[in-house]
């Protein structure tokens, strides 16, 4: 390979068609309230875990929906399942179940079961 002193750039679009949305489909099928989120961030604002770690349920929610799932696994492991996010959510999203289902879906994805 030749080195001309510059590199090809990676397109940073969210390639919606190419992205893998199986995790999102898995959650939608089992927890319809996944779709009720309006990205207000109330969950992440009150999250005890979010104080010290990069955990935002709001962000997880939107990333899964867009199929941008490379950082999801790391984030959901930080959740303590304390339920404070469920308490504040104005849309009645079952936040705990979404975390649990996302974990399940990732496991299944890794085991080629999705």
């Amino acid at each position: 390979m030749s080195d001309f002193g510059y590199v090809l750039l990676k397109n940073r679009h969210i390639d919606y068609e190419a992205n893998d949305k199986r995790i999102a489909e898995y959650i939608y099928a089992r927890e319809p309230s996944f779709g009720y989120c309006m990205e207000c961030g109330c969950c992440a604002g009150t999250c005890t875990s979010g104080n010290f770690t990069h955990l935002s349920l709001r962000e997880i929610n939107i990333l899964i929906k867009r199929g941008e799932t490379s950082t999801i696994k790391e984030q959901i492991d930080k959740c303590m399942l304390c339920g404070k996010c469920t308490l504040v959510c104005p849309r009645g999203v079952n936040t705990r179940n979404i975390i649990i289902l996302a974990g399940e879906a990732i496991q299944k994805l890794e085991a080629n079961e999705l």
Partner: peptide
């Protein structure tokens, strides 16, 4: 961001917690 909670600190100021959703940090 939708405000999650309000408390009062020692100086009597109100402390608000919210996620700055566009930055992506509490």
């Amino acid at each position: 961001g939708k405000v999650s909670e309000v408390a009062e600190n020692y100086e009597g100021k109100l402390v608000l917690k919210v996620e700055d959703t566009l930055v992506g940090k509490p």
